[in-house]
Write a protein that binds this DNA or RNA. Structure first.
Lengths: 160, 160
DNA sequence: GTTGAAACCGGTGCATG
DNA sequence: CATGCACCGGTTTCAAC
């Protein structure tokens, strides 16, 4: 399920997450590797699915979405198809995570106005009770994963 | 604050959000525009900040993060600097949104194991009470914004 | 893993309509 | 905004080490 990544692989991932369009020649300089070796590493990261793709990042406000909200949905039923259909139709729903806990789903919703947000939340409320938090600002905008130094915490005991 | 985007601009944004590396020539075919006009549009979207950048997308599981969680933080104090410092240090925290409501912050945390997650949550708990939901799966993985047809909902009244 | 050289695209700039 | 062309930079592939 998970791939073995060495320090160089991580360097490459960090650079490509910062700028998905750096030329291989420039990337190879930054990771201190030859262009051909760098190229091969990137090809491998793509082939093994570590890199799932390259995307342009769009500023929500500039694109007309003045309101961002996190909506939690408590979904009593077990029939999840109707919700899936709503996710398809409603492009304002940017992300939907199924989670443990009382709230089965956590959604990220972009709206052009509070009235617009109300509309979406109304549609979601048809499925269960919702809790909405409007986002003031991204204290930390989404960033991709970075390597972890192996940690050993003495206060934490094994599960079994 | 927000830029005026016509249908062609949105076509371009949709394509570049799907594949941030499509050649201009291919992109121009998809949006049915000449290469030079397409190039100029893209340049403008970048210059006005609608497109904030291009990023490689990394699969969390393949990168060794078996556990993803949404952590909400109820932060009683008003001194937010210590939290900012933690966000800097802890690369496992992928995103942090400041929101309205009882929970001041919503964070996305990637961990290699439940023990690892516990470690991070312990650190966050130093700031306030936390609520953690572990993610089963992304019912809808993050997707960027798409255009909205102007909606007029009769059941919704103006704010003032 | 490195280096170097070739062939191939793709992007940019410009002129024209 | 479309078309065509020349120029240049980056990529890919291949060799040899």
């Amino acid at each position: 399920m998970s791939e073995d990544l060495d320090a160089v692989d991580w360097s490459i991932l960090i650079e490509l997450q910062k700028d998905g369009r750096v030329p291989i020649t420039e990337l190879s300089r930054r990771v201190r590797l030859s262009a051909s070796a760098t190229s091969e590493r990137v090809r491998r990261l793509e082939a093994t699915g570590v890199i799932t793709g390259y995307r342009a990042e769009v500023d929500l406000t500039k694109a007309g979405f003045a309101v961002l909200a996190v909506v939690r949905l408590k979904y009593p039923g077990s029939r999840h198809d109707p919700l899936r259909r709503l996710l398809e139709q409603r492009s304002e729903i940017l992300e939907c995570l199924r989670t443990t806990g009382d709230d089965c789903y956590v959604l990220k919703v972009a709206a052009t106005s509070m009235a617009h947000l109300e509309l979406i939340v109304n549609e979601l409320a048809a499925f269960g009770s919702t809790t909405t938090n409007v986002v003031y600002s991204a204290t930390l905008p989404y960033r991709g994963p970075r390597p972890t130094r192996p940690t050993r915490d003495p206060s934490t005991n094994p599960v079994v």
